[in-house]
Design a protein around this nucleic acid. Structure first.
Lengths: 178, 178
DNA sequence: GATATCATGTAAGGGGTTACATGATTGT
DNA sequence: ACAATCATGTAACCCCTTACATGATATC
């Protein structure tokens, strides 16, 4: 699922500008999907060319024109077709876990710091996902709960198993590795 | 962390060929990091150019020459520098969660199928991560346990909350959406 | 006879990010 | 004064994936 489809999905909930779509991606959604202006605006352009969305320009006082996008019937069909396809597995890229695999090369202090940072990050993610907010639809509610459950599990695991990675630094055995 | 650093990390455990590095990525690691030959071989080329790894060519009978890479002291330093940097947050791209957000556009049958597929995927991931295998070092052991904990939490959440997303399909209310 | 394993690599193309360019308004 | 919010867009670049190209050996 690329930015085009994601925009189509957001627009299926109601009309929005590119700027507003980006804002939606800054809420809880950003934990499992992200996109920058550099991909959103071109995506909306292509969707317009393909007549999957329609653009209405609203002139504004002392601001650039607002371009409000609406999904077209053809766009809704394209979205439904896409959603019906078999779903590809999640793509995760975790520099944190990679760093842990190679953590023998880190000082115990650096490892402790990394773990502390992570625990704090999990806590703030959990707080952020506590969303009885203006979340669009039951799907969004489920997704927030899902995210919270995962971050909580991650937090717990890290707290209960941190001892496995601290105390294995090769740097404790000899100051100089090289 | 890109493929170059990841290769450097793998090579810090011992010499390996590009082919062997790829194989490591097919085990439990692939749940949080992935790379194809199309990125591994060029990465090894650049690392060699930068003298961060050394290449030894081994002629083989009736097989292409094997190219065994070893990390150099400079490579080890580059790796350590990289690992010491503040770690960027995980990047997750979940088509599954995105689909759930937009699941009102799916038929109840399609939603059920999606959930069943997911539960099966979680189960096989959990089995796969059950690794007292030849995992390199304590870090890898931690990471496997971490992955297992997350997939288990995901599985449990999905099973306990699936009712929240089934039964909201707009398609149950009217056959034709358009 | 087909598929998997071993083993390397390249080229085209895809999809994205970052940084830049512009500019008024509102809040600290 | 300075930063943030609103609002759009482009261009350069990055990194990766997919598919291709090659080819022997072993297994089903």
């Amino acid at each position: 699922m690329d930015t085009k489809i994601f925009c189509l999905g957001i627009l299926s909930f109601g009309d929005a500008t590119g700027y507003e779509i980006k804002k939606q991606l800054e809420g809880p959604f950003r934990h499992f999907y992200d996109a920058s202006f550099g991909s959103i605006y071109p995506a909306l352009g292509k969707l317009t060319d393909a007549a999957l969305v329609e653009r209405t320009e609203l002139a504004q006082d002392k601001r650039p024109d607002k371009k409000v996008y609406s999904i077209t019937p053809a766009g809704k069909m394209a979205l439904m077709d896409e959603l019906a396809k078999p779903i590809s597995g999640d793509k995760v890229k975790s520099d944190f876990l990679a760093t842990i695999v190679f953590s023998e090369l880190l000082s115990p202090a650096a490892i402790d710091q990394m773990i502390a940072d992570r625990l704090a990050a999990y806590d703030s993610a959990i707080t952020e996902l506590d969303c009885e907010q203006t979340m669009t639809g039951p799907g969004a509610h489920f997704v927030c709960g899902f995210g919270k459950a995962l971050y909580t599990a991650a937090r717990d695991y890290l707290e209960n198993h941190r001892h496995e990675i601290v105390g294995h630094s090769l740097l404790t055995k000899s100051e100089k590795v090289l």
